[in-house]
């Protein structure tokens, strides 16, 4: 008898409403997560986990839906931190009421554009071969073999070149940080 009741009790959430929330908000959140992790597999997983965490506690802050995306983003950042274990402490819980969505949005945009300029300028400071290997391997996404073919080098030479190019770039970025 109890066994028969169980499935009903687990169906506590309104799937239609969850679909509506996801449809209206997934894109900015996914972009934000992707920006951090740079791969689709992880971006999809973390986006999902952020929704689960936020909606599990949504009764605390449903009165401020305009904060919702900012709250999702901050939660997603906590998920990334937890998963990558950069911070051994448990991710800080975010209080929905303390987030100013306007500030968060403005910060996102201005930060993003200044970061882009910084990276682009740093790339320009690399030597021709180093810049090309980064363009082909990372920006255009070619394989080592394809890049080797295009740059007329061996695969192992490409690996060495990209390692050094990234070392140089990391140092330039660090100088400008």
């Amino acid at each position: 008898m109890f066994g028969m009741d169980k499935p009903k009790k687990t169906q506590q959430y309104d799937v239609k409403s969850i679909e509506e929330i996801c449809s209206a908000t997934w894109e900015p959140l996914y972009r934000y997560v992707y920006f951090k992790v740079q791969n689709r597999q992880e971006a999809e997983d973390i986006t999902q986990e952020a929704y689960v965490r936020v909606l599990s506690y949504s009764h605390k802050g449903a009165s401020r839906p305009e904060n919702f995306i900012a709250y999702l983003k901050t939660t997603a950042l906590n998920v990334i931190r937890d998963r990558w274990r950069k911070d051994k402490r448990r991710g800080t819980e975010v209080d929905l009421e303390t987030i100013n969505p306007l500030e968060a949005a403005v910060e996102d945009l201005s930060e993003e554009s200044s970061r882009r300029i910084l990276i682009e300028n740093s790339l320009k400071r690399l030597g021709q071969d180093q810049r090309r290997v980064i363009e082909l391997r990372i920006i255009k996404g070619f394989s080592v073999a394809q890049t080797a073919g295009m740059m007329d080098k061996t695969a192992s030479a490409i690996r060495v070149l990209q390692y050094r190019a990234l070392q140089t770039l990391a140092n330039i970025l660090e100088e400008n940080d």
Partner: peptide
């Protein structure tokens, strides 16, 4: 460097898949 590129966006059915997975996660 990769952040200079547009993100690799999920397939068109992603919002529906996402909602289904979120629902499972909540349960």
């Amino acid at each position: 460097v990769r952040s200079l590129k547009e993100p690799d966006m999920p397939a068109g059915d992603y919002p529906a898949r996402l909602a289904a997975s979120v629902n499972k996660g909540l349960i």
